[in-house]
């Protein structure tokens, strides 16, 4: 197990380094002078020079990459050109909206998908199963931001149960903050839950056809015991893989959905930064997003090994002939 963790941590470190290099070089690729690019066409040469100084654009790229990375590790993401505050402060404040939204959507996804998928599998090829399959097929096809708009139309405008958008801030109390995130979280979760429910269903059907399920029945376990003791854990292996990937799409989806609900999250920050050409903010937010995906992948790998002893004991053996 220890070798496995060390191995995964190495991968994690390499991934982070490569990802940061990719992002850094992409921003470096901008034709011409980034400072001039940020200031637009009519900038005075002195202003550009001052900004170059401020952005730390003077110096060898390797040196600047090193400064950027070490800065991030110590919590210094640089200074936003438009807001004139440290990027770290900006990002932290926005993260206070985006992260709870993502986590809420993730919890909803799991809470909907697993029972629904299991139910469909146990009622395979019966009306309940067909219903679930049809609904999920539709759920996958619905763009989450459009679903968000429809939710606003129904629950905020017609029924007036929720406000149509905006965020009161966590200072107004936990309840008010969470309430503002309910509709966005549902909109985010529905398509992902549809996907996950289908994965859960097919994984469960797969597992129920396995020989060890027959063994369990032959031992005298009841259907329920068979399903929960032997079925669920085995079916979770593919489900966890997908769930790990879904986290990154929930983050990406959150960024889009924030626009529907006028939530002050990372999404709004980054789109404003793009229009205002605030490259430091763009760079930092993108790095943060990629970072979180890589971290989640790391934890998914660990969960995987925790569930499956075959992974824990050895690295996957390549098929040996003979």
């Amino acid at each position: 197990m220890l070798t496995f963790i060390i191995n995964r941590m190495m991968t994690l470190a390499i991934s982070l380094v490569v990802a940061s290099l990719v992002i850094f070089t992409t921003i470096e690729l901008i034709p011409g002078d980034p400072a001039a690019f940020m200031l637009g066409l009519n900038a005075e040469p002195e202003t550009v020079a001052a900004l170059r100084q401020e952005l730390g654009l003077n110096g060898h790229p390797v040196e600047r990459y090193w400064r950027w990375v070490t800065g991030m590790i110590t919590g210094d993401f640089g200074r936003s050109y438009t807001y004139q505050v440290p990027v770290a402060d900006l990002v932290m404040a926005r993260l206070g909206v985006s992260l709870p939204l993502t986590v809420m959507a993730l919890i909803l996804t799991i809470a909907i998908a697993l029972p629904v998928g299991m139910m469909a599998a146990s009622k395979r090829n019966k009306p309940a199963d067909w219903g679930v399959m049809g609904m999920t097929q539709l759920g996958i096809a619905i763009p989450n931001f459009w679903f968000a708009m429809i939710l606003v139309l129904v629950f905020a405008i017609q029924l007036q149960w929720f406000s149509a958008g905006g965020f009161p801030g966590w200072d107004e109390g936990l309840g008010a903050g969470l309430k503002a995130l309910v509709l966005p979280a549902i909109a985010l979760a529905l398509p992902q839950a549809s996907i996950l429910a289908r994965v859960m269903r097919s994984a469960m059907i797969d597992v129920l056809a396995q020989d060890y399920i027959r063994t369990a029945r032959a031992k005298g376990l009841s259907e329920r015991q068979v399903l929960l003791r032997h079925g669920l854990r085995n079916a979770l292996i593919p489900v966890v893989t997908i769930l790990g990937l879904q986290f990154s799409f929930l983050i990406a989806g959150a960024i889009i959905i924030e626009n529907v609900f006028f939530l002050p999250g990372l999404g709004r920050l980054v789109f404003q930064a793009i229009t205002q050409r605030d490259l430091i903010v763009v760079e930092s937010v993108v790095m943060l997003l990629v970072f979180s995906v890589i971290i989640v992948t790391f934890f998914v790998d660990l969960t995987y090994a925790w569930i499956d002893p075959r992974l824990r004991h050895s690295r996957l053996n390549k098929g040996v002939w003979s």
């Binding site: 991934s15 690729l29 990406a252 793009i274 937010v285 995906v293």
Partner: peptide, 25 residues
């Protein structure tokens, strides 16, 4: 394969943000 794994950490939206930041939408 490693490159592939890493690429999955860049959803289309993130790639689009990077490209747009450079080239405009």
């Amino acid at each position: 394969m490693r490159g592939n794994d890493l690429a999955f950490a860049f959803p289309a939206l993130v790639i689009a943000i990077l490209i747009t930041a450079i080239l405009g939408p």
